[in-house]
Structures are given as structure tokens and as C-alpha cells.
Amino acid sequence: MSAAVAVRSAAREVGVVWLGLVALGTGFGVVVTGYGFPWWLAPLISLTVFAGSVEFILVGMLAGGASIAAIALTTFVVNSRHLFYGLTFPLHRVEGRLPRAYSVFALIDEAYALTAGKDPAMLSSGRILATQAGLHLSWVGGSLLGALAGSLLGDVEGLDFVLTALFVVLALDAYDERPDRVTLLLATGAAGLAFLVAPGSMVLVAMSVFAATLLIRHRRGRQHA
């Protein structure tokens, strides 16, 4: 598959998610200039760190003059959920050393969500990379747009709903693909528990609890086998 074909097919299927990231990125750009930082800092952070939620926290900490150690610890805690993505992301479908390195670098929540539920055999190298590069470009472009023109754009309430809709749709699809009630129940229980005990780091705690239940489930399955 040529690069152009891969980009077009990715755009058809995940273009709406790219638009969602442009909208969210715009919000980030507005926040960065709102703290009094120069316009180029927002796209620079989005290009290099490329991790939505932690970027919002990072600029707040920078504006407040937080210590590098505090910034490092916060980044570590907030982004630790990424430890669970690489285990099942179809990196073996990506060809070439540099493209693979990029694919790992650009493994954000949305990139995992858009690929992990799918049959890896249906995902080409170009398709995975186009999906990720599109997410990256949209996030950087949105950050630039927000930093330059944020005050002119006004505030459209609810455009970031695209991501909520995305995860709901992908969870429905993943369930249809493999209607596994036990997994659904364990994940829902883990999320509910995390929401109650650690609302500030709900995703990390939920993923950790869920992963622990999977380990137990795996052991028990082995014993019965």
C-alpha cells in the first residue's frame, strides 16, 4: 500500500478523531498563551511530549515554577497507564526501525484505542503510521491554532466530546468482536473502584487493578487446564 493510499484510508476511518484532537489541541494552545507563555511553546510541547492530559498539567506547573523533580514525578504518575498499552499494541505490523521507534513514541491513548481492538492482520504498517502521524499533526496543529488565534475562536462547548464518543464506540466494537462478559465486568469493577478511591488518577488505578485481576484469571485458567 502506498503512503497516499494509507493516509486516505486512515483519514476516512479515523479522520473524525483527528478533528477531535485539533479541537482539544486548540484548547491546550489557549491555556499555554493564557499563562503568558510565547505562542510557539504550545506546538513545541505537543510535538515533543505528545501526551494530552500531562501537557495541561505541565504548563500549569511551569507557570508556577514547580521543581523539575515534581514535574518528573507527576509525568511519571499520570502517564504510567501507558505501561499497559505496549503489551498488546500491534507493533509487529510496523515495518522499519525508525517507523517502529516513531510508533512507540506516538503511542497515545487514541492510537492504542484505534488499533488494539482490531485484527492485526487487517492493519498495514502504513495504516498504523498514518493513523498515529495524523493524531500527532492534529494535536500539534490544534495547539498552534489555539496559541495564535485562541482569543478569536471563542469557546465552543462540547467539541472535546468527540473523544468520549470515540472510546464508547470502540468499547462497543471490542465487545462485539469478542463478547467477553467477564472482561467487561472486571474492567467496569476496576473503573468503579478507582473512581471511588482515586478519582484523581482513575485511569492508572483502574488499569492496574484490572491487570491484577487478569493475572489471577490467567493463573486460575492454568490450574483448571
Binding site: 488494539a116 481492538g117 470502540l170 471490542a174 472482561t183 491487570a211
Partner: peptide
């Protein structure tokens, strides 16, 4: 993992 992570 995929269904669980997406659900979360």
C-alpha cells in the same frame, strides 16, 4: 486487555 482498556 483491549476490551478492558477501552471500557476503562
Amino acid at each position: 486487555m483491549p476490551l478492558g482498556a477501552l471500557t476503562i
